[in-house]
Design a protein around this nucleic acid. Structure first.
Length: 580
DNA sequence: GCCGTTTTCGGCCCGACTGTTTTCAGTCG
């Protein structure tokens, strides 16, 4: 029995703090990296470490967790404290970590500021800069001091991450901007944007050109730029509004593939790729793959596929480059079967003017059909969602009659399922009567209220919904809103287990604000044999195009189309529903 | 601190840019 239910992100944060404090104290860099690596490994786990320990699971079987971090994890879970961390905290002000976050400052400079001037937080740093005291420290100067002052403003504003859809908008504006630059031969956006992460911390633009200077001049004309942070022969960094950074890198065509590989990351993926290459007598950098014995001999570089091939790897789709599963023995099959947007045949979660949607059933259906889908389910809210004028039994049944009539007019190539997004109420019951729910083709159950209940209560509510005979799926299972609201506390492992047992689906909600389940959770559900469903939760015609973001989550989770219910054609979908 | 087809010690990815240094350290990705 564990006394402290610490979440994985909290445990990871303690190891991150440990790493920061060790770095400030000038520890061995590899030891520091081990803590950071361990923190990431824990953050990426689907199951809470506390549960794993309770089950006597061997934590050292997790890559990046050795005997020391496993033991420290146990201590934290058992006692809620880590003595080594507390000792470090007593030696070094932990607020120095804020100073390390200022762009241009790292552990060494933060420590120098502390040692020389007693600066230990952002306020005293600002004061010292304004008084000119910082420029007098050895290793600093007037330029460093000025840049600190400027960057303090950015840190205080807390640099925002862009949601993936906002990043798409920015990327297309940049593409248009560069369309006027004939010197550009190839252009691609790399980094976490290309890996389709749910939020993007900065944007990396990669270009081939014979005239880097002209490309950079054109970049400098991008209207949103507030400041040019750095500009060299091949690399330029700028800041646009909201403290968001864009990096531009110009490379030779011979290096295009290598640069694309390098700048797509992730960092952890690249570290693994490079050490694999090294074991084969090869060296990988952003210019190519080279023979270790004759570094003038470029083995690959122009083409990204080639870069992977010479290292003995298949070309790995960017979404999988997170050092999670892509170096496993089954990677070729996984890549071959990886789900694509074109695998999606239907969309089983959307709203209409009957509740808080902007369009009618017919309009939603027509747009879905235009987009190539074979079916949709209309799933308006149930009555508990009063603000959306949710449907009661009578209105739901009336809407389903209307759908029957519309289906009759369709030629059979497209079908509208009669659905409902039924609220799971605070007491665990469903918002519509059993007799009503029985008449629906598709019932997806959601929690919208009472999200501050205990982990046990919310989990029980969802488990109850999973066991309900009329429910087919649980929508946005964790309720998180990216950058706005944390997921509610749930026992995901128990929910996955119940979904498997009762043959119910869990949703990947494709709305870029939700993306819920996320990649790691979806992967863990799929591994357990649970069928997922990817839905847009559209409230308008344009929202139907959000499906791609849900598919990206599924791809990042390594899912195949077999893992996802709505990749099935209309006939297969009908027979699945008949059996359920 | 982690890890192992170089396996229990001795490595651990690698290069660009800036500012301050007069040859390099720190930071960043």
């Amino acid at each position: 029995m564990t006394k402290h239910r610490i979440r994985n992100d909290e445990l990871a944060a303690l190891f991150e703090e440990m790493a920061d404090l060790l770095e400030l104290s000038g520890e061995n860099p590899f030891r520091i990296r081990a803590y950071r690596h361990g923190a990431m490994a824990i953050a990426a786990l689907a199951d809470p470490v506390a549960d794993l320990i309770a089950k006597d699971f061997d934590l050292t079987s997790i890559e990046g967790i050795g005997a020391t971090l496993a033991e420290k994890s146990k201590v934290i879970v058992d006692t809620g404290h880590l003595p080594q961390l507390e000792k470090l905290r007593s030696e070094i002000p932990t607020t120095l970590r804020d100073i390390m976050r200022v762009p241009g400052l790292g552990a060494k400079k933060a420590m120098a500021l502390y040692r020389e001037l007693g600066i230990c937080d952002l306020t005293s740093l600002r004061e010292a800069c304004e008084q000119g005291a910082v420029a007098a420290i050895k290793g600093f100067g007037t330029k460093t001091q000025a840049s600190i002052l400027q960057n303090l403003g950015i840190v205080e504003k807390a640099a925002k991450r862009l949601s993936i859809d906002a990043a798409d908008t920015l990327a297309s504006r940049l593409r248009e901007h560069f369309a006027d630059c004939p010197e550009i031969e190839q252009i691609e956006f790399a980094g976490s944007y290309r890996r389709r992460k749910e939020t993007i911390g900065d944007l990396d633009i990669l270009v081939t050109s014979q005239s880097p200077k002209k490309v950079m001049d054109r970049f400098a004309e991008f209207p949103a730029i507030q400041e040019v942070l750095a500009r060299g022969d091949t690399k330029m960094s700028v800041r646009i509004s909201d403290a968001f950074q864009i990096d531009l890198r110009v490379v030779e065509p011979e290096a295009w593939g290598a640069a694309l590989q390098y700048f797509t990351g992730s960092k952890e993926h690249n570290v693994h790729v490079r050490s694999l290459a090294k074991s084969k007598g090869l060296k990988v950098n952003e210019y190519g793959v080279f023979d270790t014995h004759d570094e003038t001999r470029r083995v690959a570089g122009r083409d990204e596929q080639e870069v992977y091939r010479v290292i003995g790897l298949p070309w790995i789709p960017p979404e999988l480059r997170e050092n999670r599963c892509e170096f496993g023995v089954d990677i070729k099959d996984r890549i071959k079967n990886l789900i694509q947007l074109t695998d999606i045949r239907g969309d089983l979660h959307m709203h209409t003017t009957a509740t808080d949607g902007e369009n009618s059933i017919e309009e939603m259906a027509a747009r879905a059909q235009e987009m190539g889908l074979a079916y949709i389910a209309i799933t308006d809210h149930s009555k508990r969602v009063t603000i959306a004028r949710g449907l009661d039994d009578a209105r739901a049944i009336a809407q389903w009659r209307q759908i029957d009539a519309i289906n009759k007019k369709l030629d059979g190539s497209f079908h509208i399922f009669k659905g409902i997004e039924c609220d799971i109420l605070e007491d665990g019951s469903l918002d519509l009567s059993d007799e009503c729910l029985e008449k629906a083709d598709w019932v997806t159950a959601s929690v919208h209220f009472g999200t501050r209940q205990s982990r046990e209560q919310i989990t029980d509510r969802i488990l109850g919904a999973i066991r309900h005979p009329s429910v087919h799926s649980i929508s946005h299972p964790t309720g998180r809103l990216i950058s706005r609201r944390n997921p509610y506390e749930i026992d995901l492992a128990a929910i996955i287990q119940a979904a498997k047992e009762f043959d119910k689906c869990l949703e990947i909600n494709a709305n870029p604000e939700r993306l819920d389940l996320n990649d790691i959770m979806a992967s863990s559900a799929a591994e357990a044999g649970v069928l997922l469903v990817i839905n847009t939760d559209a409230h308008s015609l344009s929202n139907l195009a959000l499906m791609q973001y849900g598919v990206s989550v599924a791809r990042r989770g390594g899912l195949s189309k077999e893992n996802v219910l709505n990749t099935r054609d209309l006939q297969a979908m009908r027979s699945w529903l008949q059996k359920h």
